[in-house]
Nucleic acid binder design. Structure first.
Lengths: 246, 246
DNA sequence: TCGGAGTCTGTGATTTCCCTGAGAAACGCA
DNA sequence: TGCGTTTCTCAGGGAAATCACAGACTCCGA
């Protein structure tokens, strides 16, 4: 079932109306903290574990709808954890976290079952987007909930990556797309540059904070050009997006 | 009965509307995991077994509509398992998994009864396609569900392997065909190179990721040459196929 | 009106990503 | 075995995307 939260965000809910449950497994505390916060912000219920044993126990007790699983755990091989997790939770989709270079060796193939993976360092927007995709497709949440974000006459399709305003198709680069997705998932809400940097760029991004200004500028040229503006600056606070006629 | 899932994929269902049931028999846990995940993603119900005894027991209890059977099992000869399986499930089609060199000796002939086989290492697209064919032909699923994928003026027949665009027949190599099939089974959806590699190439493929770029290039020459392009690149995201006039 | 903090954007360097030609290796078939 | 086909690697070229920098602009309070 899909409802609109007070903030205007679309929430995934289970068929019985209760929040989606996600288990996060990583041995780095900073990562589980980071993910837990971001995912709670989605309105999901989060449990975390730091090793394979804890993951299996949590899986039994918590019965999550999806699992975020680091492939590098201290006590058990990631594949072994996955195998035993599968026995416990046969139909639950898994989002793997993996180092950039480890992909070919071990992940290839695993993602075929509808699972997915993200390489470290990741951006939170990406993790959230992929998790939403997995949960939506797994059927834990209502299948009718689709993958299109709409704000005013602006639409963004998370599957096809298509963006259009008032019927005109707009081409965005990968970064522009992620930024706009983040804005549109939080319409009418002021997002600070720090928040945007945290969510849209990788968590270890070390560059200048004004990339956000730069990309807002790019987006405006493509989305607001010659139209009633939808992207607004709140000086000293951040940016927000809202329907043009409000 | 054929229904369209949210992703736009066609699902096979039994006449009573319940999901198709498939039994996977292999002694390598990684293989049963891989297959179980991929086949569940097709919307099928999966049971797995690691040896001949387990397979026979599962066959009795689970009453599958199709069986994936590795010919190399620890406790029993593959042929023996097959024989006893046949006594239990006379009309159920079997997809054999076999090493590349063992083919001629023993499998040829077995497949005469409407069964089929795939050599290890296989690609998931191939296993799924062959299983779909077996199930469809066995009558467990509704026969009306057809085997032709259509996107715009492009058609691909999964049975005859015929491909044509705007009436012009197009010859594709095996790899090109599988890649195009995967794209066409996910129209208007961005597929990452990693996803494509996972599904279209063998699970143990260790090569360069740019084979995907290469084969996309081949497909374009054959399918898009001199026409309105249907295969599109989303830089930094992946590829997608969609009707030319959209 | 002036000044400063905050924001916007043009320019260009650098990096990343993608495409494709050439050829080697593996395969299939006669 | 030999030949044509298919698969895949490698490497170069080129296009696009990303980002730093700096100067211009805007807003707002003194």
């Amino acid at each position: 079932m899909t409802t609109i939260s007070p903030q205007g965000r679309t929430e995934l809910l289970r068929p019985d109306g209760s929040p989606v449950r996600v288990l996060v497994v990583d041995d780095e505390l900073s990562i589980t903290e980071l993910l837990s916060m971001a995912l709670r912000y989605e309105g999901w219920q989060i449990r975390s574990a730091g090793d394979g044993q804890g993951a299996l126990q949590a899986a039994r007790e918590f019965r999550p709808d999806a699992v975020v699983l680091d492939m590098m755990l201290p006590d058990m091989d990631g594949l072994a954890v996955l195998g035993r997790l599968r026995r416990e939770l046969p139909d639950v989709p898994v989002l793997f976290l993996t180092a950039k270079d480890a992909v070919e060796d071990r992940i290839a193939g695993l993602t075929a079952g509808g699972d997915d993976y993200v390489t470290k360092p990741f951006s939170l927007e990406e993790v959230v987007a992929r998790l939403r995709g997995l949960i939506r497709r797994s059927g834990a949440a209502d299948r009718r909930s689709d993958s299109v974000l709409v704000v005013g006459d602006l639409t963004l399709d998370e599957d096809s990556h298509e963006v259009s305003r008032a019927g005109d198709s707009i081409h965005l680069t990968a970064t522009e797309f992620e930024l706009l997705r983040f804005l549109m998932r939080n319409p009418r809400r002021v997002l600070s540059k720090a928040q945007i940097l945290d969510r849209v760029w990788s968590y270890d991004f070390g560059g200048q904070a004004n990339v956000v200004e730069l990309y807002i500028s790019y987006l405006r040229r493509k989305i607001d050009a010659g139209r009633e503006p939808m992207i607004h600056t709140r000086r000293g606070a951040g940016y927000l997006i809202k329907p043009a006629v409000s």
